[in-house]
């Protein structure tokens, strides 16, 4: 589903290389996790894939369902089926959460040439999906993420994911700033979306999120490259020994 080949990325502002040849394939129905120390390039990878400005791809490619991601705008990537759950979801005062969600859903449908969702149909679906994430009517009415707690923001990300029904979900440090209960709730939301047509790329610092969202494949990223790939046991190894041993081993 997602094919990343030899991806090299620099910062536009300063001549600094962040990704130095990333190779990664995520198949439909699979959950891949990327772990790695701070500054290894994990978040940069998620931003480059979703089309954030400020990065320059100097070499390599990234395709989603055979389409060249790097050539199209962020909104086109979204309509194609890419979704990024932000590490720090943005607050947007003055735009109601519900209005935002409906605009997003219908923009994507329009871009794909599908019929827009009617207001009543949308309302029905959003209420049902919000309920399982313990998002109440008030949170839906409030401006996007404004005054939300850390946990509420992350749940709101998962609600967006549930409404947009993407094919490829990237979760960027979704566990950061969450207590155990909030993390369980978010993980349940993610697990409910797992199916054989959907791929996941879970970026995390710690193993604990992977206790709840069980990965099929675990990658270790360091200094802009994937340096080791293995099964779920690799995450446990990190948990027990830290990154130092693994990095020393591959060095």
């Amino acid at each position: 589903m997602l094919n990343i080949k030899n991806l090299h990325v620099s910062l536009e502002e300063e001549d600094k290389q962040i990704l130095k040849g990333v190779n990664l394939t995520v198949e439909a129905g699979k959950v891949h996790a990327i772990m790695g120390p701070n500054g290894s390039g994990k978040s940069t990878l998620s931003y480059v894939l979703s089309g954030k400005e400020g990065y320059e791809v100097t070499e390599g490619s990234a395709d989603l369902l055979g389409e060249d991601l790097l050539e199209i705008d962020p909104e086109e990537r979204a309509a194609l089926g890419l979704f990024l759950a932000f590490q720090y979801p943005v607050e947007i005062p003055g735009v109601g959460n519900m209005t935002f969600l409906r605009t997003a859903v219908n923009s994507q449908r329009k871009a794909r040439g599908e019929d827009e969702m009617s207001a009543s149909e949308f309302l029905k679906v959003v209420r049902e999906r919000a309920k399982s994430l313990k998002i109440d009517a008030d949170m839906l009415k409030r401006p996007v993420n404004v005054g939300f707690s850390g946990g509420e923001k992350k749940r709101n990300e998962i609600l967006q994911m549930a409404m947009l029904e993407p094919k490829m979900c990237i979760l960027d440090e979704t566990d950061s700033g969450l207590d155990v209960d909030a993390m369980k709730l978010v993980a349940e939301g993610v697990n409910a979306l797992r199916n054989e047509d959907r791929g996941f790329l879970v970026i995390t610092h710690y193993q604990r999120l992977l206790d709840h969202i069980k990965p099929d494949v675990v990658h270790i990223m360091a200094d802009g490259r994937i340096v080791k790939t293995g099964g779920p046991e690799l995450a446990l190894e990190v948990e027990q020994n830290g990154y130092a041993d693994i990095l020393a081993e591959v060095a």
Partner: peptide
């Protein structure tokens, strides 16, 4: 904020 909205599929 603009990137956030676009990443959800809202055209620029």
């Amino acid at each position: 904020a603009l990137f956030y909205l676009r990443s959800r599929g809202v055209p620029v």
